[in-house]
Write a protein that binds this DNA or RNA. Structure first.
Lengths: 129, 129
DNA sequence: TTGACGCATGCCGATATGGGCATATGATTG
DNA sequence: CAATCATATGCCCATATCGGCATGCGTCAA
């Protein structure tokens, strides 16, 4: 039995790492959808989503930390509002795959071939990471 | 002090729940990006991503379970290929927010108003749960 | 000031992840 | 068949998450 110098650091990326992680949770996605309808207080959201107020608050905290929602104190209430800017990276990343679900897989190889050549000639990179 | 009838079931949605969770991990996103260049064997991907082979296999397993990649045995190797169909839901969901990052927040309220009216007239709901 | 209301946090427990390494499984070649 | 290469799994651990409930904190009303 060796010394097992385990260097285990983190288990799973924090939900607050980025928008990708934040929107992984369905509940958080629903919150964002609701927020498209305008600013709303926490309790309201909680009720509509059928979750407890603390849960809603926690989800909202995550969304706030990644910058997907803003808060604005309105008297006793705190109105949460959508700030969709943070979703752009997601949109762009996914957008890079659009052509791949429009093509059948049999023809995909050719497609890929073209892409490869085009990329080499244009020396046009800058999407990974 | 009650009996603490804790009903805690699951902690966090499985990464294999859906595409949203699967692509939450940066490494998995990178794999998909690499796969845009065509089918590739595991070891290849692992090397390019600077991760161990087991790790790559595990990530690929997740991606396979949500249907984002396909496998094809090619001799000793197993060629993984992209199957981007599963990304459509993501694309569509995010797409629902496009207008929100093109508009300034001051004008957002009007926007929202229009949306609300349009929705009421169309009586078009059906997103909860 | 005391209440009351709205929201944020804290704590507990169960779970699954992700990383590391060792090894089982599969397929191919000699 | 045995040996080998390519992958897939199995375990270990540390961590963060989510769910439930209780309570702290800030704001407004009486």
């Amino acid at each position: 039995m060796p010394i097992w110098a385990y260097d285990c650091a983190m288990a799973r990326a924090a939900t607050t790492s980025d928008a990708f992680n934040a929107i992984a949770a369905p509940q958080r996605r629903e919150i964002l959808v609701l927020l498209r309808g305008g600013e709303r207080p926490v309790t309201d959201l909680a009720r509509d989503l059928g979750m407890t107020q603390p849960q809603a608050s926690k989800h909202l905290r995550v969304l706030r930390e990644v910058g997907l929602v803003r808060v604005r104190g309105a008297g006793k209430q705190r109105l949460y509002g959508l700030d969709a800017h943070g979703l752009r990276p997601v949109r762009e990343w996914v957008g890079g795959f659009e052509r791949f679900w429009n093509e059948s897989f049999d023809r995909l190889d050719e497609y890929v071939h073209e892409l490869k050549q085009a990329r080499q000639e244009a020396s046009h990179d800058g999407d990974d990471q």
